[in-house]
Simulated scan of single mutants.
Amino acid sequence: MSSRLKFLAPLALTLSLAAAWAQTPPAPGAPKRFPQITLEQIAPEGQALAQEILKISSVGLAGPYNIMFRSPVFADRMKRLLDYLRFNTSLPPRLNEFAILIQGQAWKSQVEWYAHYPLALKAGLPQHVADDLKTGVRPRDMAPDEEVVYEVSTELMRTHELSDATFQKAKRVLNDQQLVDLVAVSGTYVTVAMLLALGQEMPPEGKPMPFPAR
């Protein structure tokens, strides 16, 4: 790749991410695609799962859980995967939440950003890194491990592969399991963003949407 193309590729990614439409709410007066499920509506075999979700979810049974419960077996399997990726992954929480925000920004996912922005800051991600990311620019002054998470995630999104140079750079910072877990959390939160888009799920009523709706 020429030096000019190397310069233009990150710029093209920035512009494409910044230009992407934000996930939008239903039209005024339109019913929700998936009416909000309540604890009372969940079958007895799903009650334990629902109670677990209520203990950890910043949106209760709303957001992706409202969609997931339409497929109960999937909801159970997905919750177990999310438990690993959120609480037992080999990645430090700061990097894990950064990876989630990268997907939230790429998808302009209102709920993902609303839920994970405060979690990322609490985990130690510098606010300017998250705020730069939200605007669609490469964050300034990233730590070396944050830079690796950003470059691996965005390169995979942009080119659908990972160059030897980026892989070797990543291996100097992350071990094998951490690289696998980085890809796993990134792909899983693409699924979450798609579920949220399917149901036009939004942050709780009265809360601002992180991204301007189209």
Rank of each mutant, 00 (worst) to 15 (best):
D141F: 07
Q103K: 11
A165Q: 15
R140E: 09
R172N: 15
D76G: 07
S163G: 13
P93S: 12
Q177V: 07
T188E: 09
I67C: 00
R158G: 11
I102G: 00
T159Q: 08
T89M: 04
R77F: 05
A50V: 03
H116W: 06
N88W: 06
H160Q: 15
E151W: 11
Y65W: 13
N175Y: 14
V137A: 04
I100T: 00
V129P: 02
G136W: 03
L95M: 07
R140T: 10
V183N: 04
R94K: 12
E146Q: 15
A123I: 13
M68I: 09
A120H: 01
Q103A: 11
V183H: 07
R86G: 02
H160N: 12
Y65Q: 11
P64F: 03
V185A: 01
A120W: 01
R80E: 10
Q168Y: 12
D145G: 10
L95S: 08
P92T: 04
V185K: 03
Y150A: 06
Y114T: 07
F69T: 00
L61A: 09
K134I: 05
E52W: 00
L179K: 04
Q127G: 06
L82T: 01
L156V: 09
L182Y: 09
R140H: 11
V180A: 14
D176V: 14
V137R: 09
A143G: 05
Q105L: 13
D181L: 04
N96P: 06
D132G: 10
L162Q: 06
R86Q: 14
T188P: 01
D131L: 11
D145F: 00
V148A: 15
S153D: 05
S186N: 14
I102V: 12
A143C: 06
R140I: 06
V183Q: 04
